[in-house]
Amino acid sequence: MSDPIAPHVLIVDDARDIREPLGQYLRKHGFRTQLAGNASEARGVLAGSAIHIVILDIMMPGEDGLSLCRWLVAHNGPPVLLLTAMADETDRIVGLELGADDYLVKPFNPRELLARVRAILRRAPPEIAAPPSGRRRFASWLHDPDAMKLTADDGRTADLTTAENRLMGIFLDHPRTVLSRSALLDMTAGREAKAYDRAIDNQMSRLRRKLELDPKKPQILLTEWGGGYRLAADVTEDG
Rank of each mutant, 00 (worst) to 15 (best):
R136A: 08
L104N: 05
R123L: 15
I170N: 02
K28G: 05
A183I: 00
R118A: 08
R176A: 07
T236W: 12
S182P: 00
H174F: 15
R92C: 11
D91Y: 03
R230D: 02
E127Y: 06
V73A: 06
P218I: 10
Q34D: 06
Q219M: 14
D173W: 04
R181Q: 06
A85W: 01
L160A: 03
G169S: 09
L104C: 12
V235S: 10
L56E: 13
M60H: 08
G169C: 01
L22T: 09
Q203I: 03
T33Q: 11
W141L: 02
L104S: 07
D173P: 10
C69E: 02
E41W: 12
L22Y: 10
R123Q: 15
L46Y: 09
S182Y: 08
R230W: 00
T151I: 12
Y103P: 06
V9E: 00
R191N: 13
Q203P: 00
G48R: 15
L184F: 05
P78W: 06
E127N: 06
V235D: 13
L211E: 01
S180T: 05
P132N: 07
A100Q: 08
P21Q: 00
L96F: 09
P79T: 02
V117Q: 02
L172V: 04
E192S: 15
S40V: 15
A163I: 08
V12N: 06
M1G: 15
E112L: 13
D197Q: 11
R135N: 01
D214E: 04
I58C: 08
A147E: 06
L231K: 03
D186L: 06
N202R: 15
